[in-house]
C-alpha cells in the first residue's frame, strides 16, 4: 500500500479509533489482500508508517457493500466494474482479514 495512504489511515485511526472502517477499491486480488493485511496486521513490506502497527480495522471491498448503498449509485459507480473484475476473488482476499 502507498506509503502516503498508510500515513493517512494511521492518522484517521488515531483520531477515530475503532469506529473507522476501511473500504477498498483495488482491482486485483493480490493488491486488495496486501491492503487488507496492512490495515489489520501491519505493513508486510515493512516500508511504511504501518510497519509493525496492528490496527485490526474492519476492512471491506467496495463490492461487499452492494446491498448497503442506493442501487442507482452503486450501478453508476461500480456496475460496469462488476462485469470487468473477479468479484469473488477480490471479496475472498479481503474477507480473510476480518475477525
Amino acid at each position: 500500500m502507498d506509503l502516503e495512504n498508510q500515513a493517512r489511515i494511521k492518522g484517521f485511526a488515531d483520531q477515530y479509533g475503532k469506529d473507522l472502517v476501511i473500504v477498498l477499491g483495488a482491482g486485483e486480488a493480490q493488491a486488495a489482500e496486501l491492503a487488507a493485511e496492512t490495515v489489520t496486521q501491519g505493513d508486510p513490506t515493512y516500508a511504511g508508517p504501518l510497519a509493525g502497527v496492528q490496527l485490526e480495522l474492519p476492512v471491506y471491498h467496495a463490492f461487499e457493500l452492494k446491498d448497503s448503498v442506493d442501487p442507482g449509485v452503486y450501478d453508476d459507480q461500480a456496475g460496469m466494474m462488476e462485469m470487468v473484475l473477479d468479484v469473488d476473488a477480490l471479496v475472498e482476499s479481503v474477507k480473510k482479514f476480518r475477525a
Binding site: 486485483e28 493488491a31 496486501l34 466494474m81 470487468v84
Partner: peptide, 13 residues
C-alpha cells in the same frame, strides 16, 4: 507486480 493486465482491463471496461 499485482497491477493486473492494464490493457485487458481497459478493453473489458
Amino acid at each position: 507486480a499485482g497491477a493486473g493486465d492494464v490493457t485487458l482491463s481497459n478493453l473489458k471496461m
